[in-house]
Write a protein that binds this DNA or RNA. Structure first.
Lengths: 346, 346
DNA sequence: ATTGGCTGTGAAATCGATTTCATGATTTTT
DNA sequence: AAAAATCATGAAATCGATTTCACAGCCAAT
């Protein structure tokens, strides 16, 4: 990598203020402010002069000052978990899109699945006086969220929480797990393994519950040796498949708790020369963008995080009094069948 | 999806201020401020009382007020392009890590590869009085950046820019293109196709230049029919491979201008039953996280965006006067050979 | 002609913290 | 023991915008 450093430090040129503008335009600061906000009548000639001065001075209002006085930062805080994971970036992008044109800007901070850090970041957002907050998943307690909602409206995804000033949205993870498993069952699979997510994630245990329910509904027994714990990332999927294979317990399909788990599993299978879906069928969860371009493209339960983000953005906007906006439909989970699953014939 | 709305709106409970704390602790606001910032001696008993009051009132300082007075927001603005693309999220995460423990928080805004939008977002960051700015790629003109650098230090990646108060970092894209192509040539390939990026991206044209140079160095002629334009996303890769194959011009390897292009190409090849790397070798560019888990894992030129982000963060931190921090090594491009390339034997 | 209602404008108050300044108390120095 | 230096602290000024308030000028209604 090549680096080019600045020759020397230059002290920042002082930014101009309303007062500078006022002086140049021969009006008072109040008039400048009125023109900036367009909420009062001002004579056309003064308006002209002020606009000219603003242009000349390249004036940009100081948002700290503005929000100190007007108690609105026009900012929505987003507490996400991982800045890199497609699951969260999908949601973030949806929020950003939902906010588009509303005049509100997103402020994104990562919590890293760590309670202390999440709490700290959330408080940072409150300190910054965000007008509303959107929490994507995470491990914050319901009581914490309810308490923070006293300061500003909060939309939260991935949980069901009834409290004043909070709007919660979530997908039915049990139903998702059921869907994935039922698809496999309908293809004739009888010995279906499951690589779970971390037991600390409630959605992981719900997906497993769905896997169990699907078996019960079909009056199929589940072999506990076929359930192995993963960690929601690729390595866990590889490890799990290898231990499954090494245990010699037979199975013809695997329901992976999320897509990265499936990717890891798929690579391990490839390394061992086992064909997908020829010998083993695979179903994932999340439908992350890359899943569509795997070889072969993966069958997975789609979580429309993008739309979820839009809906969450919309909810807080509405809570802030912006009612005149197009309404996005509430999305739901759905199975997208691609090519990692095939019917099982004895 | 299930939605749960708040029963009714509750007016936010007023946040407490230094004055509230001061009153409760029987001291002046100045004393509270001194304790908050720890920059002056205060008697232990008052400190105790104030800390108690802070806890009791759940006091959090208003950052708008603080930054208005102290002229520092403790925030670094990050202008990225796409909140979802691994290339940018890698850099963002690196920055976040580089900022860790410095007391500065990142504020991320997306520019969407659109000049007007980038300019608008950059101005937003300036309005918010970020202490420094990091620009990841994008289409802003050098002059714009130099001008904005008068307000605060700026680190910019993906270009070479010498100006006061700006720090620029970039990888040598020509060398990267050369590396990828030389690898293929060293494996015995003679007819190497190239799927380019958009001609509007300077790094795309530089990568192509590297491809050309590698051929020249090896005294190999390049068949212009083997160079086809892509768009840096999967669809373009698919399209390009199909048109290449349909043209019947023979080739045994493809240098794809970035990893998503390769993913698209790889899928198209799979659909046509062509084996990778058995029949066609593929080299990508970027080493995005998923590339490692494709089937087979992809050979690609690694751009360590993560480290680039760390270095950029470090540069601005240093510009802001934080000199006492561990120094990350400057990363460089390197070829990571995995399994989409094989030697070509007639 | 007088009262009443608008309208455009500037002066001053305000938001909540930090920082400067002044002061009285305490400690150190000579 | 007197002078000097240091310390802890509160009052007041300050950051840059918005907002309230007061008022002068103007038009219309009585």
């Amino acid at each position: 990598m090549t680096q080019f450093a600045a020759p020397q430090f230059v002290s920042p040129s002082a930014a101009s203020t309303v007062l500078d503008v006022a002086r140049l335009a021969n009006v008072s600061a109040s008039t400048v402010s009125r023109i900036l906000n367009g909420n009062a009548r001002v004579s056309p000639d003064k308006r002209e002069a002020v606009e000219e001065a603003i242009r000349k001075l390249k004036f940009r209002p100081n948002l700290s000052a503005r929000s100190l006085r007007s108690r609105s930062t026009k900012t929505i805080g987003i507490l996400t978990q991982d800045l890199e994971s497609p699951y969260f970036t999908g949601g973030t992008k949806g929020i950003e899109q939902g906010l588009l044109g509303s005049g509100y800007a997103p402020l994104v901070v990562p919590g890293h699945w760590n309670l202390a850090e999440e709490l700290d970041r959330a408080r940072l957002l409150i300190s910054r006086k965000v007008d509303a907050m959107i929490i994507l998943g995470g491990t914050l307690g319901d009581d914490h969220i309810a308490e923070m909602a006293q300061q500003q409206p909060i939309a939260v995804t991935g949980r069901h929480l009834v409290a004043a000033n909070v709007y919660s949205f979530h997908f039915d993870q049990v139903a998702g797990g059921r869907m994935a498993t039922e698809h496999l069952i309908s293809l004739g699979h009888k010995r279906i393994a499951h690589i779970t997510g971390p037991v600390t994630h409630s959605d992981a245990v719900e997906r497993k519950e769905g896997y169990l329910q699907a078996h019960a509904n079909a009056r199929l027994s589940v072999d506990p040796r076929l359930i192995v714990e993963g960690d929601y990332v690729e390595e866990g999927g590889e490890r799990a498949i290898n231990s499954l294979l090494d245990s010699k317990v037979p199975f013809s399909a695997v329901f992976c708790a999320n897509d990265p788990t499936l990717w890891g599993a798929r690579l391990a299978l490839h390394r061992r020369g086992i064909e997908v879906p020829g010998q083993i069928s695979l179903v994932g969860f999340d439908d992350m963008p890359q899943s569509m371009y795997m070889t072969p493209p993966v069958t997975t339960v789609r979580q429309p995080m993008h739309q979820m983000g839009q809906v969450a953005a919309q909810a807080v906007l509405r809570a802030l009094g912006l009612v005149d906006m197009e309404s996005y439909p509430l999305p739901s989970l759905n199975l997208v069948v691609r090519e990692t699953t095939a019917s099982f014939d004895l």
